[in-house]
Simulated assay, not measured.
Amino acid sequence: MPKLIRLYITQVLIGFGISGLFVALLLWLDVANLWTLIRGSDVTLLAIAMLWFMNGIVFAGVQFAWAVMNMAEKDEGPKGGSLVAHGFVPVRVVAKSVKKAR
């Protein structure tokens, strides 16, 4: 299996795992009475599965993007910009008035 595909599958599984923890915490802490609302419904499992899956898509995408961006090579050059001090000199600007049309 190519390394990129293996990386993608691994990061997606990690993202869905994080989503499972997130949904479990949401329901356990009863944020915005979410668990109370879901528990009183007749489609409890469907609601939990949808909540996990939709958050899983987001977390998996973020996890994969973070993994790809973390693969960038680190620059060894100087950092922080120029060490030369810049002097600021005020410049006079003439403002002309514009006559209003009637």
Rank of each mutant, 00 (worst) to 15 (best):
L4Y: 01
V94A: 07
V93S: 05
V84T: 00
E76N: 10
T36I: 09
S97Q: 12
T10G: 10
V43K: 15
M71C: 09
D30R: 07
R92A: 05
A101M: 06
A65C: 03
D30M: 06
T36S: 15
A101C: 07
S41H: 09
L27H: 04
V94Y: 03
G56C: 08
V84Y: 06
E76T: 11
P2N: 13
K79Q: 12
L46G: 10
M69I: 06
H86T: 04
R6T: 10
A49F: 14
G61T: 05
V58D: 01
G80P: 00
V12D: 00
F59R: 07
I57R: 03
V23M: 10
L25H: 08
L4E: 05
D30E: 04
E73I: 14
L4D: 02
A65V: 12
R102L: 08
G61H: 08
L25S: 11
A85G: 06
L51Y: 14
L26S: 07
L45Y: 15
V43A: 09
V98R: 12
N55S: 15
G81R: 09
L46M: 05
N33T: 09
P78H: 02
Q63K: 11
K96N: 15
V91N: 06
A72Y: 12
F59S: 11
M1T: 00
L29S: 04
D42W: 15
W66G: 02
K96M: 06
P2S: 08
V89W: 03
E73G: 03
V94K: 01
R39F: 05
E73N: 05
L21M: 13
T44N: 12
G56T: 10
V31D: 03
R6C: 00
D75I: 06
F64S: 05
I18L: 14
M69R: 00
H86N: 02
M50C: 14
W52T: 15
S82C: 08
L45F: 14
T10M: 03
I38A: 14
W66P: 02
L46E: 10
S82W: 00
Q63D: 00
F22D: 12
N55G: 03
G15W: 04
D75S: 13
L51H: 13
N55T: 12
T36K: 08
P90A: 11
K74H: 08
A47R: 03
G56D: 01
T10I: 01
K74W: 15
L29T: 05
A95Y: 01
L25Q: 10
R102W: 10
L21F: 15
G87A: 01
G87I: 00
V58A: 07
G15H: 13
L29G: 06
W52C: 15
K99M: 07
W66D: 05
I57M: 09
V91D: 03
E73D: 06
V68M: 11
T36D: 14
P78D: 11
